[in-house]
């Protein structure tokens, strides 16, 4: 487990920034165009994904695991099944984001392999953090790519950059009702002590200034 999650935010770990610029930093999304081939999309079905191929799912899971980190004791996005949530959303109501995910994830994987000879599985937590940080820093360039359906229309609703899109969807996979495929065993809600779908709150429950103890419950349990 990494102990350096916040290094990129205080700006003090310049050796890591240097690593970023030399390796992961070169993962400029602008370079990915043309590398994209539909026929390269593997049909391997892993984890019951309906949209992602294996390498896409692995990469997104790695990113999700750094956005909302966790382990067996303190479950995070991976344990919540956040990528499973995103996969099901992309196969349904978020279909308009399919192209964005395909291009972005395929491009990142290609960059990792072709230019650095690594796959996402070989990156450690610190390197993954730098990768996520680079995605965050590249927001403006992503806008220019016009990859996001929301951005093209300037809706003012929904995510407006690659990083914000991935982050928002990961957090939805952590905090949404388990009926959507994420928040498994309520691990997202447990992290913030949110009991979920309840018809009733009593006056006693509402007027305490202490953590509430109420069973975790899905809309499917009602």
């Amino acid at each position: 487990m990494s102990t350096h999650d916040d290094t990129r935010h205080d700006g003090s770990e310049w050796s890591r920034r240097t690593f970023l610029k030399r390796s992961a930093g070169a993962l400029a999304l602008l370079a990915v165009q043309g590398a994209f081939r539909f026929d390269a999309l593997a049909q391997e079905q892993q984890r019951g994904y309906q949209f992602f191929n294996r390498s896409e799912g692995e990469l997104l899971e790695a990113l999700a695991g750094r956005i909302w980190p966790g382990d067996a004791q303190d479950p995070g996005a991976i344990e919540a099944g956040a990528v499973h949530y995103i996969d099901r959303a992309l196969a349904g109501p978020y279909a308009s984001y399919q192209r964005s995910y395909r291009v972005i994830l395929h491009g990142l994987n290609e960059q990792l392999r072709q230019r650095f000879g690594v796959s996402v599985r070989e990156l450690d937590d610190d390197q993954l953090d730098l990768l996520v940080g680079e995605l965050e820093d590249q927001d403006e360039e992503d806008d220019e790519l016009g990859l996001l359906p929301g951005r093209e229309l300037e809706l003012g609703l929904g995510p407006d950059s690659t990083f914000q899109m991935i982050r928002q969807h990961v957090m939805e996979g952590v905090f949404s009702d388990p009926i959507y495929g994420g928040n498994r065993n309520f691990v997202g809600w447990r992290a913030v002590n949110y009991p979920g779908a309840h018809y009733v709150y009593t006056a006693e429950e509402q007027q305490v200034f202490e953590p509430l103890t109420k069973p975790y419950q899905s809309v499917a349990d009602l």
């Binding site: 990494s2 750094r66 909302w68 980190p69 995070g76 965050e136 982050r167 992290a191 913030v192």
Partner: peptide
């Protein structure tokens, strides 16, 4: 931060 362990701890 809006992601990562510090973000999770904060929330």
């Amino acid at each position: 931060p809006t992601w990562g362990r510090e973000y999770k701890r904060y929330l």
